[in-house]
């Protein structure tokens, strides 16, 4: 029997390292006819803002080599809708429910965090300071050490449990941003959010996306993500959650070896709605094959 329990910061332990990436798994329920959600380490629900948001205009997505560009723009019905309508339906799941939060100002982040703090089943939030698709704010906080630290400090004051800060890869030195959010009190970091990209329809001579640029995800980004997870894990003491192009269990192991205490599976859910559970089973099998009795033995071996 392999012990898959792992820490994701602030004293929070999850039953296994498989999480789902925000914005790719809805509120979990979208996948409930394919998998048993209770078997996940946790699921990170879609990006939630204080006010409802309509998101960007269609078209919002285009497939690119081994990946996809998206520009959804944080479409969601606002934190009050989450608290009143969604949260009660998710409470009975055994897995951790982590809410990803976004804002256009520090006050926005704080307001969302305050609304979530009293909910007993929400033991962690993931602070998105890295959305490349929203003009006001979003990534602006995540691309400077001072901005990243300021948001982290403010959210930590507003939310009494685990605060994970999701980092942008669209920076020159991601390790310095990670150190800044650690100094700001973050309990963990997750990385990477999407890489900013662009694709053009040459027949129509127009960008494919309504917003011109978007966020690249999928297998194409994985080597960049593994490298950044490795760099950040070397630079900080808090747990690192790895994501970016994980398509299967073998990819997840790669992130764990690079220094991730847990992983988030995102875009792969679109292609294989059972990928999370298949990855979990792969990890169990891998550990047995390699005589690993505790997943923690693998974390950051490289």
């Amino acid at each position: 029997m392999v012990n898959l329990r792992t820490h994701i910061g602030g004293g929070l332990e999850i039953q296994n390292p498989i999480l789902t990436a925000s914005g790719t798994f809805g509120y979990g329920e979208e996948y409930s006819s394919f998998i048993d959600l209770n078997r996940l380490g946790g699921f990170i629900v879609k990006g939630t803002t204080f006010e409802p948001r309509q998101g960007n205009d269609y078209p919002r997505m285009v497939e690119t080599p081994s990946g996809m560009l998206n520009a959804v723009g944080l479409q969601n019905k606002g934190v009050k809708h989450f608290v009143d309508e969604i949260y009660p339906r998710l409470c009975d799941y055994k897995s951790e429910i982590i809410v990803n939060i976004s804002g256009a100002s520090i006050d926005d982040y704080v307001a969302v965090a305050q609304m979530l703090d009293p909910l007993p089943r929400i033991k962690a939030i993931e602070v998105n300071i890295s959305c490349p698709n929203v003009k006001a704010g979003g990534m602006a906080f995540g691309t400077t050490t001072s901005g990243a630290q300021a948001v982290t400090e403010a959210v930590k004051k507003a939310f009494s449990k685990t605060v994970i800060v999701k980092l942008s890869p669209n920076v020159t030195d991601i390790a310095s941003i990670a150190k800044a959010v650690e100094a700001g009190g973050a309990d963990a970091v997750s990385l990477i959010n999407t890489l900013m990209g662009m694709a053009i329809d040459i027949e129509r001579r127009r960008p494919y996306l309504s917003t011109i640029t978007g966020g690249l995800s999928g297998a194409a980004v994985k080597p960049v993500a593994v490298r950044m997870v490795w760099q950040v894990a070397k630079a900080v003491k808090i747990p690192v959650i790895g994501l970016g192009g994980i398509m299967n269990g073998a990819d997840a192991i790669e992130f764990i070896l690079a220094g991730a205490s847990a992983v988030e599976i995102g875009t792969a859910n679109f292609i294989n709605p059972k990928v999370t559970i298949e990855a979990l089973e792969f990890i169990e099998d891998y550990c047995q094959r390699h005589n690993v009795t505790d997943i923690k033995e693998l974390i950051g071996q490289i």
Partner: peptide
């Protein structure tokens, strides 16, 4: 509309409606 997942998770294939927006 161009779809990512078909399951209502990725929110890419949206159409504007009178009653609920996207």
């Amino acid at each position: 509309n161009v779809m990512g997942c078909g399951l209502g998770a990725c929110l890419c294939c949206v159409e504007k409606t009178k009653d609920e927006g996207n």
